[in-house]
């Protein structure tokens, strides 16, 4: 300190005086970002590993220490893993036999039902709506066995009917979500139309629906994702390889691995198809991030 000029000394003192608060704040800030960055790296790492392992060949996958950046990268793994294993068919099944029909039916049925709960005033409505909400708490496994028996007796095993048809009857969660949204639309709009003699269905179609597009998008997004991610449903109802959706296709690829020890390029292929199947959800999320966050926040807080 003795080598410092008086002005410098005064400057340091000054900084300490009004700076004691800001130094602790500085450390708080630093530690906050450190925690968040370390967490983020940990959280992203599995995805990083999925992606980079997909680019490796066998000698890069099984080395110790693990290879963090595969050089050279084997991009053709994505193509090979996908086409050598019938994944075009699985993707077709997932999208056209499951996701799209389930989404379409859910959006239509939940909209109509939610309108009945939100905008038509009828005696007993609130009790029935409460019953509708409580069905959300019934574990899936409770109706799993009887529904399986029912669908088996209908001859629906090894078809997508057990997974798709129930969507025509609305989902409690989506009905709840849409009802909350419909309630926010001013009643005056409907009343004006009623005076003009529009039927309730006409009001839903011409007045409510155009305003509800964002809410319908949330429902569609969540239902599509639910079907895309569904594993247990297809596992129970589908065991014909020609009908498998992506989730079962991936598990099939994996069971091939464990049956034969570790086949050639087993892990890279498994990681490659996993990466490809994750991608649509990631893209949906990045394009519709606000829709996602708002949808989930609304149901959480109003619940």
């Amino acid at each position: 300190m003795s080598t410092l000029q008086p002005t410098q000394r005064r400057f340091i003192k000054q900084a300490h005086k009004d700076g004691s608060l800001s130094t602790t704040r500085f450390f708080v800030e630093i530690s906050k970002y450190t925690v968040l960055i370390v967490l983020s790296i940990t959280w992203i790492f599995p995805f990083y590993w999925m992606f980079t392992s997909a680019l490796k060949n066998d000698s890069q996958v099984y080395t110790i220490p693990p290879v963090l950046v595969p050089i050279p990268a084997h991009w053709n793994n994505f193509y090979d893993a996908w086409t050598l294993n019938n994944f075009n068919l699985y993707a077709f099944n997932s999208v056209f036999l499951y996701c799209l029909p389930a989404t379409l039916l859910t959006v239509i049925s939940s909209t109509v039902v939610a309108y009945g709960f939100a905008r038509v005033h009828w005696p007993g409505r609130d009790i029935v709506f409460f019953i509708c909400l409580t069905t959300m708490m019934i574990p899936w496994q409770v109706t799993m066995v009887p529904l399986f028996i029912i669908f088996k007796n209908l001859g629906w095993l090894n078809t997508y009917l057990p997974l798709v048809v129930p969507n025509a009857f609305g989902g409690a969660f989506f009905i709840f979500m849409l009802r909350q949204f419909f309630m926010t639309i001013p009643e005056e709009l409907s009343d004006a139309a009623r005076i003009d003699g529009t039927s309730e269905f006409g009001i839903l179609w011409r007045i409510i629906l155009p305003l509800a597009v964002p809410a319908l998008a949330v429902v569609a997004l969540f239902r599509f994702m639910g079907a895309w991610n569904d594993y247990l449903g297809p596992l129970i109802y589908l065991n014909n390889e020609q009908l498998m959706p992506l989730a079962l296709g991936i598990n099939r690829l994996r069971s091939n691995i464990t049956a034969t020890g570790t086949a050639e390029l087993a892990y890279p292929y498994l990681m490659a198809v996993s990466t490809i199947v994750v991608m649509p959800i990631l893209l949906l999320f990045f394009f519709a991030q606000r829709t996602f966050i708002e949808g989930i926040s609304v149901t959480g807080i109003k619940g």
Partner: peptide, 26 residues
Amino acid sequence: RSFFRAVMYIPAIVPAICTSMVWLFL
């Protein structure tokens, strides 16, 4: 904030089969 929130949220919305496979491997 929205970046960190996205990072925390994404494991919850991608197919569990895919994340299970990578954890099985990890």
